[in-house]
Amino acid sequence: MKITFQNREIETAETSVDAFLASQGIDARGAIVELDGELLDGGSVASATLREGARLDAFRVVPGG
């Protein structure tokens, strides 16, 4: 299926957000993840699924304060 990830259209066979992000080298537990305009907290990411046309964005949380 086709999804939009970080503003780029991408083809993926992954249906799990967690697995898709892992395939992109992003550990969802240490990232801010937004699916179709909704923020996914740590618990929601594990059960969230992708569908055709989904818009997914994610970026790593890095230390510093």
Binding site: R29, G30, D41, G42, V61, V62, P63, G65
Partner: peptide, 11 residues
Amino acid sequence: DTVDAKKMIID
């Protein structure tokens, strides 16, 4: 300043 603490408060 840590990743875990940042994620915790956001979540």
